[in-house]
């Protein structure tokens, strides 16, 4: 996936000379995950910029660059390092278009490697997406596989609105053949039914899509047919796709790494309860992180949803007759 992102960024840099990359260690080093490997050598230090170590500074200056007509793509090195930039993202980036009654657009993309399961030390495994999805003016998307990574990063960069682009870092090394000549067939903000099923719908995004698919496979061997939806966009959320699925299956489980409390799953549960009230055969269930800070990596497997926790939720849902 890291290579697919690299290819997508290269394509964006090639397509539009206003596109530029900014971040800590993204130039000579190529980024700590090598997502920007070789791009500075190819496009120069003015377009692939090693910035000082200050997240607020990166986003603040990128806003200025965007106001000057550039399309900056900022890398926040790790999820847990985004908070110093919170004001620039939430009070500035998100609101400038509204504040100026549409006069100023800020086509900024912020890439955020996120999520756990990589055995890291503190602040390197967080899932802060809900903070940003909660903020009007921002768009929030996340890829789950190399193919989407390649297409979605280009779509995000082309958007005239600010986009938070969350990259599931534990899937960086997932491999797949990516057709670099294929245009994306799905809109950036559309969810995708990954596998169709009839008994229950599982909605997941980013790193949890693979987990949901593994759970669905396991469930199938037990005779349960699971439909898995990759949400892809967290703001806006493609509720129509979820609706259609739940109208068919009557049961929904939402899975994410982030804390369940007031997470993306809470919004989905509320909306689907409104929209599919009379189709629901069981309450919408959520599987996710606990209401604790992200734990030390030696015990992170107990915090993160895994196949068994997803299957358990499926069982609990199906038990409601």
């Amino acid at each position: 996936m890291a290579k697919a992102l690299n290819a997508g960024l290269r394509r964006s840099l090639d397509d539009d000379d206003r596109v530029m990359l900014m971040g800590e260690d993204i130039g000579r080093l190529g980024g700590v995950f090598r997502v920007t490997d070789q791009l500075q050598a190819e496009f120069g230090a003015d377009r692939v910029v090693d910035t000082p170590l200050a997240e607020s500074g990166i986003i603040g200056t990128a806003i200025g660059l965007a106001m000057r007509g550039y399309r900056p793509v900022c890398e926040i090195q790790f999820d847990g390092f985004i908070y110093p930039a919170f004001d620039q993202i939430v009070s500035q980036l998100a609101k400038i278009h509204t504040r100026t009654e549409g006069a100023v657009t800020v086509p900024l993309t912020i890439r955020v490697p996120y999520g756990g399961g990589i055995g890291a030390v503190e602040h390197h495994s967080e899932s802060p997406e809900a903070y940003f999805a909660h903020t009007a003016g921002l768009r929030v998307v996340t890829c789950s596989n190399p193919d989407d990574a390649f297409g979605m990063i280009q779509q995000a960069i082309r958007s005239d609105d600010p986009v938070l682009f969350f990259e599931p870092k534990r899937r960086y090394w997932d491999r797949a053949d990516v057709d670099l000549d294929a245009a994306p067939t799905v809109g950036l903000y559309d969810a995708r039914v990954v596998i169709a099923g009839s008994d229950l719908t599982v909605v997941a995004y980013g790193p949890m899509v693979a987990t949901a698919l593994a759970a669905a496979k396991e469930a199938a061997s037990e005779g349960t047919s699971i439909e898995v939806i990759d949400l892809r966009s967290l703001s806006p959320i493609d509720f129509d796709t979820i609706d259609r699925s739940v109208a068919k299956t009557g049961r929904l489980v939402v899975v994410h790494e982030a804390s369940v409390f007031l997470g993306i799953g809470a919004e989905i549960a509320a909306r689907i309860s409104e929209r599919c009230f009379f189709q629901l055969e069981a309450p919408v269930l959520r599987v996710g992180g606990y209401a604790t800070p992200y734990p030390p990596s030696k015990v992170e497997q107990y915090y993160l949803p895994d196949v068994d926790r997803v299957l358990d939720a499926i069982d609990r849902s199906l038990a409601v007759e």
Binding site: S56, G57, I59, G60, T61, A62, I63, G64, L65, A66, M67, R68, G69, Y70, P72, D87, Q88, S91, Q92, R99, T100, E101, A103, V104
Partner: peptide, 28 residues
Amino acid sequence: NPYDINMTTPAIVIGSQMLQAVGYAMGI
């Protein structure tokens, strides 16, 4: 419209505008 007079409208959060000016200058 900021582009009409090349000046941003009020920035209420203290200290938020200076980085944006630097970024704009980097663009120049």
